[in-house]
Structure formats: structure tokens, C-alpha cells
Design a protein around this nucleic acid. Structure first.
Lengths: 141, 141
DNA sequence: CTCATGTCGTTGGTGAGACCAACGGTACGT
DNA sequence: ACGTACCGTTGGTCTCACCAACGACATGAG
């Protein structure tokens, strides 16, 4: 299956990219079964543990550019999953909050995402998973 | 710096994505200093340890779609780094080979890429690097 | 030999993700 | 009052990955 040339296959960056590509495929698969993409989940998850926030805070929490927050919130709002209201105390800001359907959906997506994590780490034993995640966290300074 | 919401930060897929993003940035940085992108290096590297091959073999070796091979080879050919000649024994095929300048460039890119690997793994001790790469390889079945 | 099947390279298109620039509107400190 | 800085929006760009359709060509079955 892996016909990749040795000079590439030996590179840590290549292995990392392959592992991430697989993880990404599994995660995207899980989300798309519900009709959503990565940006949607990131925004919902940020709202889920951050409460109603401005879009700029939302962007920092979800790791998104402001412009991508705007279009993603547009989308979620059109589906009735978040509410966007002007902030009375600062009229530059929008306050974004989960709606009840949004919160229920987040619960289902959380489950799907958790299952995806297991699927991604499936090739490793529980002890290896712990060590792997620890090394991964160190790798991102 | 990392203001990402806990629900995301705890996900292995998130950590993997962040680590890969960082690795990718470092690698792209290294290549772009020479004026090239990932696809260019992948193709040159595949030619470097595979000898002259058809574009379809090149695609398998470099992990690229046929269409992406076509445009990448176009580009490298225009820069005089590879030669594309019809295969007399099968006129459907093109045989792609490194030119002498292409081979010299590959040497320089290899050095840059090797330095990028070190930079990516810099946060880990040598022993940890070995374990990390081993786990990474297992994660990609 | 003929013809169906399948491969090769090319063109063109899609979509996600990450990012950047510029704009009008707004807040705030000086 | 005014300059500075921030907010959200719009409208791009780029890389990467992938898919569909096409003509040219090779090959095996009959």
C-alpha cells in the first residue's frame, strides 16, 4: 500500500503528516456523518465550554481567523444552532451563544469526536497512547 | 499563546494537527527559502532515489495524484530541473529524469529538509525522538 | 486481426483549511 | 475632539488532496 520513496518515508515530518492525514480523515468522516466540518465543531466546542463570547474570543478559542469565524457563525446561525446578537455594552461586538438545539447537537458531536479519537489511537496500547500524547504535547511549544 | 478551548486542546487529533502544522510550517519555510514547495521536493526526492521513471510511478513514489504530478513536472521542467521525454517502448508514458542541475538542487534541498527535521524534533531528547517516531510509524497502518 | 478493456498523461474543477488585506463602524485614552 | 486600536465583514490567495473526463495508446481474448 505504501509505495512511498525511502527518502520521504524516513522523514519524521512525513510520518507526522501521514498520521495527521489519517486522523483528519477519521475525524472529518465522523463529523460529516452529521453534516458538519471541522470549523463547525471547533466553534460549537468553544461555545460549549466558554459560554457566550464575542467572535474575536471565539476565534482565539477555536484557533480560527476572524474571517473564518464570521462565515462559520453565519452558517451555524442559518441552521439555528447559535444566536448572534449585538453586544449592547460594545457595539463593535457580536455575542455568539449556543441555542438549545446547538447544545444538543454539540453533545452528539462530542460523542462522535470521542469515538474518532479512539479510532485514531486504535493501533496503540493504552500505555503507548499516553506516552504518545505526552510527546505530542511537548512537540508543540 | 495557546488560548485554545479545553475541549479541543485535550483531543489527540488536535495535538496531532498542531504538531503537524508546526512541522509543516518549518518544512515549507525551509523549502521556500530555495523557492520551492512540498510537491517539488517530493518529486525531486522520488527521482533522486528512484532513477528515471514514468509519471505514474512518480506519483506513487511521491504520494501525489496523477494530475498534480503533471503540473509539478511542468513546473520543474520549465526550471530545467527535470527532463520529460516520451518513452519509446510505451508511447503513453513520459520518462522523467533529474537533470544535473536538478540533482545538485536536490542535494541542497536534502540538507535543508534534514535541518528542518531537527528543528521539528528539537523539543525532544534523542531517546524521545526515537520513541516518538516509532509510535508515529505504528499509527499509520 | 479486431475489439474491448484498461492504463497514461492532461486539463479542469472541487473543497477544506489557513491566512492576509482593506474597509466601515465603534471604543477609548490622551 | 481626535488619533489609535479593535471589531466584524468581505473578498481574496495559496497549498494540498482529490475527482471526472478526455484522447492516445497498449494489450489480451476471441
Amino acid at each position: 500500500m505504501d509505495d512511498v520513496t525511502p527518502r520521504l518515508a524516513a522523514l519524521p515530518t512525513w510520518l507526522l503528516g501521514q498520521a495527521d492525514a489519517r486522523a483528519h480523515r477519521i475525524l472529518v468522516e465522523a463529523l460529516s456523518e452529521h453534516g458538519f466540518r471541522g470549523y463547525h465543531y471547533r466553534v460549537l466546542a468553544t461555545l460549549g465550554d466558554g459560554g457566550p463570547v464575542s467572535q474575536s474570543v471565539l476565534g482565539r478559542g477555536a484557533g480560527l481567523d476572524r474571517s473564518d469565524v464570521a462565515t462559520t457563525v453565519d452558517d451555524l446561525q442559518a441552521r439555528g444552532l447559535v444566536a448572534r446578537t449585538p453586544d449592547p455594552s460594545d457595539r463593535r461586538r457580536n455575542v455568539v451563544a449556543l441555542t438549545p438545539p446547538g447544545r444538543r447537537l454539540l453533545g452528539r458531536l462530542d460523542t462522535a469526536v470521542a469515538q474518532a479519537q479512539d479510532a485514531v489511537l486504535a493501533p496503540l496500547t493504552p500505555a503507548e497512547r499516553t506516552r504518545f500524547v505526552a510527546l505530542l504535547a511537548r512537540l508543540h511549544p
